[in-house]
Amino acid sequence: MANHYIYIVRCKDASLYTGYTTDIDARIAKHNEGKGAKYTKVRRPVKLLYQETFETKSEALKREYAIKQLSRKDKLQLIKGALI
């Protein structure tokens, strides 16, 4: 049974990017190689700030969507309250 993750990274320009993956370490490496998302490709390096784990892809994608709807301030509050 694969784990499903949502994550938030901070980009070089201090912007935040939220994404989904089944392999968090590989995904962060891909972002930093410029092979992740189009958004992060020109904003490298990225640093993992936050992650959550889910049993199903559906749950993870719903949470990713919810986080993407948050303001930057709310995302920073989420990160601040979390320990990885």
Score class of each variant (00 low, 15 high):
A26K: 15
L49D: 02
D25A: 15
V9R: 00
E33T: 11
A60G: 06
T40E: 00
L16N: 02
E59W: 07
A66I: 08
R72S: 07
T18D: 01
G36Y: 01
T18G: 06
L16F: 04
L83N: 14
H4Q: 13
G36C: 03
R63Q: 14
A37T: 06
L61K: 14
L48M: 03
D74H: 13
Y39C: 01
K62R: 14
K41I: 02
Q69S: 11
I24W: 01
T21Q: 07
D13F: 03
Y5V: 09
K38H: 04
Y20G: 04
L83R: 13
K68W: 02
T40D: 02
T21R: 05
Q51W: 07
Q69A: 13
Y50C: 02
D13S: 04
R43D: 00
H4R: 09
R27A: 05
Q77P: 01
Y7L: 06
T56H: 09
A66S: 14
N32K: 05
S15K: 07
E59R: 10
Y17F: 08
A60Q: 07
F54Y: 15
S15M: 06
E55M: 12
A37F: 05
G34F: 03
Q51L: 10
L49P: 03
A29F: 10
T22I: 14
Y50R: 02
K12D: 05
R63C: 08
E52A: 15
E33M: 09
K41P: 01
L70Y: 13
H31N: 02
L83S: 12
R10I: 04
T18P: 00
L48Y: 02
Y39I: 05
D23A: 15
P45D: 07
E52N: 14
E55R: 14
S58Y: 11
K35N: 11
A60M: 12
Q69E: 13
V9D: 01
K41W: 06
N3L: 14
T22Y: 11
Y39L: 06
A82D: 11
L61F: 06
I6M: 05
S71A: 09
L83V: 14
L61R: 12
L78M: 12
L70K: 12
N32S: 07
I84H: 10
N32H: 05
K30P: 00
A37M: 04
Q51A: 06
H31K: 07
A2C: 08
K47Q: 08
D74R: 14
H4S: 07
D25C: 13
T40N: 03
A60L: 09
Y65W: 11
M1V: 13
Y5M: 09
I6N: 01
L78Y: 06
K73I: 12
Y17L: 00
A82K: 08
S58I: 12
